[in-house]
């Protein structure tokens, strides 16, 4: 579904990505791992359109999207979350999640001014959809009217996932969904991610440091180190790979 081939990205002299190539298969959970500074988030930013790669292509559903703006990629069905939560802090949880529905709605400027009529019908339908499909699913109904700033970190992460789900994405990209969470919160989030895949059939690409979780829920893993792809395969294959072991633990003396 998503196919990255020979991706190169550099900032001045720093080569953030050097020839990364992998495929994300439809309906599966693919993980990207690597030590700090390996280029995982750079890869995500290149896939979602914030960075223009110097070489290589990103293809989604067979069509080349390498030069497409981020908002156009969203319209194709790509959603993502950010490593350091990027929610809209001036809004309530509900409004944040509603924004996920932006591309699916049609209200134009003039019907927005009138509100009553088409715009209202559309808004109520959106509300029903996110209440029943997202808020209920992620168990955040008790906080829907809260401003974002009042929520603890773990819940903010969940609201960000909710906002992405409101987009009805076909590809969901999660940048460190359990970073900074305790074991219980991590288990919750892992359960939600698996549920998303199972219930909605969403394809998921995630970056994560928590090895246990990645090994548990991913069917494919890509390993980066210093911008280079050093391994790719199933969790078992990757964990046996000498290059991966060396990257994480250092070479045997």
């Amino acid at each position: 579904m998503l196919s990255v081939s020979d991706l190169h990205l550099s900032f001045g002299g720093i080569k953030a990505l050097q020839g990364v190539s992998f495929d994300v298969r439809e309906g599966e959970i693919t993980g990207v791992i690597g030590p700090n500074g390996a280029g995982k988030t750079s890869l995500f930013n290149a896939i979602s359109g914030f960075y223009a790669p110097s070489e290589g292509t990103v293809r989604f559903d067979g069509s080349d999207i390498t030069g497409l703006a981020p908002d156009k990629r969203a319209q194709l069905g790509m959603a993502r979350t950010f490593q350091n939560i990027a929610l809209f802090r001036g809004m309530t949880v509900l409004d944040n999640i509603k924004l996920g529905g932006h591309t699916r709605l049609k209200t134009g400027l003039f019907s927005a001014f009138r509100y009553f009529g088409a715009a209202r019908a559309e808004e109520l339908e959106l509300r029903r959809d996110i209440e029943e499909r997202v808020i209920d699913f992620l168990e955040i109904d008790h906080i829907r009217k809260y401003p974002i700033t009042m929520l603890p970190y773990g819940l903010q992460k969940r609201v960000e996932l909710a906002r992405a789900l409101a987009m009805k994405p076909r590809l969901l990209m999660l940048d460190e969904p359990v970073a900074g969470m305790n074991r219980e919160e991590t288990a919750d989030m892992a359960r939600f991610i698996l549920d998303v895949q199972e219930q909605f059939g969403t394809t998921i690409l995630l970056v994560e440091h928590d090895m246990h979780m990645v090994m548990d829920i991913c069917s494919q893993i890509v390993v980066l180190n210093f911008g280079q792809q050093i391994a790719a395969g199933t969790p078992d294959e990757v964990s046996q790979n000498p290059a991966v072991i060396e990257a994480y633990l250092g070479a045997a003396a």
């Binding site: 703006a69 908002d71 959603a79 950010f82 809209f88 802090r89 924004l99």
Partner: peptide, 10 residues
């Protein structure tokens, strides 16, 4: 509130 986040939502 956050322009890049708005972009990612389309």
């Amino acid at each position: 509130d956050r322009d890049y986040s708005a972009e990612i939502l389309g």
